[in-house]
């Protein structure tokens, strides 16, 4: 199988938000012990890239920007079958918003494609910590690649003609789009299931020399466009949401039988919120 396609997959290491807790008294984030994971949406993108590798033969480079610990995310990606891993890490990248992040990642991809031309860039549909969905489009615009967001299926790739046909989730339906390579694809969640890492890939990943690039190695041309300095948006304050003081009215009955509890709830609810009588059982009328 020829290695005639080169795919870059952008991934991010994020705190597992399901395990973040707010301190009940001080209302601050309790970060201790919150495990770092690969952004789950990025794994969907990686799996889609791996499937293209199975189908057409491809070389997959995973790229991440973050602190030195983000190496862990790249090793994870290698264990699933990625071929090459690059970590952008430099103090001057810190504090980047989405515009500055897409500048740094696009610079690195330009550098990568000096060695081997890049046909496709993959990204998750969004991260679970920032939830912005802006970095993928930002990279595509900077690299003048065709942008395909929320892709639910890659139908065909014709490498000879440099053509690509995909299904894209849009409001109210699915678009079938045909475009030219190179393209940037952000992948919809739930379209595939991540494969298991093989033993040999896990061993390879553990020992693999991940390339670590600082701002110079990443080919950053304009240092005023990275990090905090390159970010048009500024966080002016962070605060805890106003805690609700109203607690739930607990429905209890003497018998504690589910049927009695249900009947009591309905009676109380319809008495206090009579408008709900009209709302229920309405569909299809």
């Amino acid at each position: 199988m020829s290695l005639n396609m080169h795919i870059v997959v952008c991934i991010k290491q994020v705190p597992d938000s399901a395990q973040i807790r707010v301190h009940p008294v001080t209302n601050t984030i309790m970060r201790q012990g919150v495990p770092a994971i690969v952004n789950p949406y990025d794994l969907v993108a990686l799996e889609e890239a791996l499937r293209l590798k199975d189908r057409y033969g491809a070389r997959i480079t995973v790229l991440s920007m973050g602190p030195p610990q983000a190496e862990g995310a790249l090793r994870k990606a290698l264990s699933f079958g990625a071929d090459e891993a690059i970590l952008l890490t430099d103090r001057s990248f810190a504090g980047a918003d989405t515009l500055a992040t897409s500048y740094a990642l696009a610079s690195a991809i330009r550098k990568i494609r000096l060695d081997i031309p890049v046909d496709l860039v993959f990204a998750g549909k969004q991260t679970i910590d920032g939830d912005t969905a802006q970095v993928g489009p930002g990279i595509a615009i900077r690299l003048k690649m065709q942008l395909l967001t929320y892709v639910s299926k890659i139908e065909t790739i014709d490498l000879d003609k440099s053509e690509l046909t995909v299904q894209r989730r849009a409001e109210g339906g699915v678009q079938v789009l045909k475009t030219r390579l190179p393209a940037l694809i952000t992948v919809l969640e739930g379209i595939n299931e991540m494969r298991f890492a093989t033993m040999s890939d896990m061993f390879r990943a553990a020992r693999y020399p991940i390339r670590v690039w600082d701002k110079d190695a990443a080919g950053i041309e304009d240092i005023s466009k990275i990090g905090l300095k390159g970010s048009p948006t500024v966080v002016s304050k962070v605060f805890a949401p106003t805690p609700r003081t109203q607690k739930a009215e607990i429905i209890q009955t003497q018998s504690d039988q589910p049927g009695d509890v249900a009947a009591t709830l309905l009676a109380k609810m319809f008495a206090r919120f009579p408008q709900l009588r009209d709302a229920i059982g309405r569909r299809g009328e």
Partner: peptide
């Protein structure tokens, strides 16, 4: 932070 805090930008 996954919704646990709010920030103004």
């Amino acid at each position: 932070f996954g919704g646990s805090l709010l920030c103004t930008i």
